[in-house]
């Protein structure tokens, strides 16, 4: 069974409950960024964040997403992650997903580094034995040493990011989702982290990454999709 992603006519509409209904004046003052704001009679205001998106990603492909702020990149990544089910259209994702969208999610600053490795691992759906087997690797890579036993609140912000990065990149999956290229730590660590990320990506059948940087997209991705106002442009 091969890994692939197939999106057909995917639309995502966010209901906005506390937005004032659009007036004529607001109609004139159209903003250039963000999804299309619409209001149907009786249905309230909604924002069309993704509009009829079609694409396909096969094994070995690295898809780059680019576009302005609010063009729908992050929303599309979340649709792929399974967070948002499309309002209309279908999306088929075959393969295990690892989401590196927010690597410090679920971090408990009062808990120790070790406890956080377990918490984060469980959140990503790993069984305890698997997490235990990764602890040494994570501790060594993050260069935290004995600090791994200390509460995370005693860490510097760089150390927190190093731990979060080390945990997030220690998980193998078929599909990797990334919002911007991950770059953490001081000069030495940045290089090390980049190598680790690249080797992780090379082992992963599919990568979908959103980025503003044309250089990174060119270097990492095999194809690039440009979004504008929730549409492929």
């Amino acid at each position: 069974m091969s890994t692939y992603i197939k999106a057909e006519n995917v639309c995502v509409d966010f209901p906005i409950f506390n937005a004032p209904h659009r007036s004529f004046k607001k109609n004139l003052l159209r903003v250039a960024t963000g999804g299309r704001i619409s209001s149907e009679a009786g249905k309230g205001v909604s924002i069309r964040a993704l509009d009829a998106i079609d694409f396909e990603v096969r094994e070995g492909e690295r898809l780059g997403l680019t576009g302005h702020n609010g063009s729908g990149k992050s929303t599309l990544l979340r649709v792929l992650a399974g967070v948002y089910e499309p309002t209309t259209g279908t999306i088929v994702v075959r393969g295990r997903i690892a989401s590196l969208l927010d690597i410090s999610i679920g971090m408990d600053f009062e808990a120790s580094g070790l406890e956080n490795i377990y918490l984060r691992g469980l959140l990503m759906g790993l069984p305890r034995q698997v997490i235990r087997s990764k602890i040494d690797e994570i501790t060594v890579f993050s260069e935290l040493g004995d600090y791994i036993e200390m509460p995370v609140r005693t860490y510097s912000s760089g150390m927190v990011m190093r731990l979060a990065f080390s945990i997030a990149t220690s998980i193998e999956a078929d599909i990797l989702l990334m919002d911007e290229w991950l770059s953490v730590g001081d000069a030495d660590f940045v290089k090390k982290a980049e190598d680790k990320l690249k080797s992780l990506i090379s082992r992963t059948p599919i990568l979908v990454m959103a980025s503003h940087s044309p250089e990174i997209l060119k270097e990492v991705c095999t194809k690039v999709m440009r979004l504008e106002g929730g549409r492929v442009s």
Partner: peptide, 8 residues
Amino acid sequence: GIIKQIPM
């Protein structure tokens, strides 16, 4: 935070 990042 969790719901918007990891589907479960």
